[in-house]
């Protein structure tokens, strides 16, 4: 209830959020010749590097792999950037907070919105430009995507809000978060698949020699997979892999675990934030 009152207050400050978002975009792209196109080029260039590495070194089939990587990499980039930027958002607003009242949630929320713009632009590239070359086809499963977006935003805001509060108390948190996120990146199936069943995606051949015999050639040992699946980021990323790459709806189990992760992190994040919100000013 308390938290809902807080959200109403944030809504009254929507003009501030709008201004923060537009000023961020203006500053970010000012004086760069390609401007907004950097948002589109960034994931493409990142993909090029990853693809090159995995094609040459690990001998992945590239066409299918590019679609797979991008469909996971774009939401991941959003989450990573949002969480890192949110963690500094309140500490960075010290000057403003000492001279004017704000509902503090305005700051992590503005970060989420800023990164959402970049995310949407990147996704447009994925679906249109790459789709044309890779042979991406529209499928009814894509109607899941709005839910995927929502869940991604919930996780970004929930974790970001907690990170923002923690950084006020412990400035070391910003460094920890960066390290933790890069570790999580590697244990989350983004640049490699969780499963590589021949029947599901015959293009992915991890080991050419064994591909014919094995049913599942995913790089993660079977007995470890259970633990990999506990990773909350995994269930959110799967909400993108399924409709974009597999062209299928997420299973009920996947959908439920993603829902729990999304609503859980949003709920915990907001309640935690609300609890500490009023004390932050004394620690800046």
């Amino acid at each position: 209830m308390q938290t809902l009152v807080g959200l109403k207050e944030v809504w009254r400050f929507r003009e501030v959020i709008k201004n923060f978002v537009s000023q961020d975009l203006k500053v970010k792209y000012r004086r760069s010749y390609l401007g907004f196109f950097w948002s589109l080029l960034n994931p493409l260039l990142q993909l090029l590097v990853i693809s090159a590495v995995f094609n040459v070194i690990f001998k992945f089939q590239i066409r299918d792999y590019a679609l797979y990587v991008l469909s996971g990499l774009i939401p991941w980039t959003f989450l990573q950037s949002t969480i890192i930027n949110s963690s500094m958002s309140i500490v960075g607003a010290e000057g403003m907070l000492k001279r004017q009242y704000f509902p503090k949630l305005v700051f992590p929320l503005s970060i989420v919105m800023q990164d959402l713009v970049t995310f949407v632009l990147s996704l447009v590239v994925l679906l249109c430009v790459l789709g044309y070359f890779i042979g991406f086809r529209l499928s009814p499963a894509l109607i899941v995507l709005p839910v995927s977006f929502m869940y991604m935003l919930f996780v970004g805001l929930g974790v970001g809000a907690v990170a923002a509060v923690l950084t006020v108390y412990f400035r070391d948190v910003q460094h920890l978060i960066a390290v933790a996120l890069s570790a999580i990146f590697y244990v989350t199936p983004i640049i490699y698949p969780m499963e590589a069943k021949k029947t599901v995606s015959p293009d992915i051949q991890l080991h050419e020699a064994t591909a014919e015999q094995t049913v599942d050639v995913g790089p993660i040992p079977h007995d470890l997979r259970f633990y990999f699946k506990l990773n909350p980021f995994y269930s959110v990323i799967e909400m993108f892999h399924r409709p974009i790459y597999d062209r299928s709806f997420p299973t009920m189990k996947e959908f439920l675990s993603a829902s729990i992760v999304a609503f859980g992190s949003l709920g915990v994040g907001l309640v935690f934030f609300r609890r500490f919100e009023n004390r932050l000013i004394f620690h800046l």
């Binding site: 000023q23 203006k26 500053v27 000012r30 000057g95 403003m96 001279r99 004017q100 009242y101």
Partner: peptide
């Protein structure tokens, strides 16, 4: 509250 002028000024804008 005019406790100090120039709040929120962004030098890049």
């Amino acid at each position: 509250p005019l406790l100090e002028v120039g709040i929120g000024f962004n030098p890049e804008l």
